[in-house]
Write a protein that binds this DNA or RNA. Structure first.
Lengths: 113, 113
DNA sequence: TTATATGCATAAAATTCTTATGTAAGTAAA
DNA sequence: TTTACTTACATAAGAATTTTATGCATATAA
């Protein structure tokens, strides 16, 4: 994925599913730009990571695709399947638990945060 | 590492360094038990992940070791080197940034948290 | 016409982790 | 006493994910 951040390993699927849960449909390049803008350039999602991840999620039945031609260039739009809609809820809960546990392990959890 | 949690990939070094920054010295098995107790059994640190990670950190000069025999069994104690003391500060800052970015990407950041 | 941006894709290599296995000693239970 | 579990270290094979590199193709700005 990223800059100096091997920490994001394992979070890519959850990030993709969450973006699609709030955007109805997105294409690959759009996802890379969205991640870049949300993180203000700190997380750069590489194509070599993104496209295989999208293909895998589609193969698992969590994503559906439609292809369109815009300005003579092909765009492949991804959207959540019914199963994907369910799975994103689980993935987000797992991510919340993960963050909580990590904060406990790293002493980042105080009574003020 | 863990249960159903590939999310922790990449966080192991930081977890180890942080535990050693607050415990002066620990041995491998002790680290696995500490992680288990802090996370109430949710994160199980496997030997196959831990020992190679400890050896790598030692090879990088971030950890130092002393060996002791207790009850006829060998214990290899690890502690932070001077360089390790510095590096743990960086790693913790990176982890904080990571959590912030992940919360942004997953919409887990509200004005109340 | 050269570079940059858009847009997709895949293969080779690196990294990290899981699973499995091995050695060895102590303790508790049957 | 022997079986199972705990403590304690270690490594090798395989799986999974990511980086790096490359390829193709069109559009646009310099």
């Amino acid at each position: 994925m990223a800059v100096s951040n091997e920490l994001f390993k394992g979070t890519l699927q959850t990030i993709i599913l969450n973006l699609l849960s709030e955007n109805e449909r997105m294409y690959g390049y759009e996802i890379t730009q969205k991640v870049k803008s949300i993180t203000q350039g700190e997380l750069l999602l590489k194509e070599g990571a993104l496209y295989p991840a999208l293909h895998k999620l589609e193969a698992e039945g969590l994503l559906e695709t439609t292809t369109e031609v815009v300005d003579n260039r092909v765009r492949k739009y991804y959207s959540l399947s019914n199963e994907g809609e369910k799975e994103v809820v689980n993935k987000l809960q797992e991510a919340k638990n993960f963050i909580t546990q990590l904060q406990l392990l790293l002493n980042l959890k105080t009574s003020y945060s």
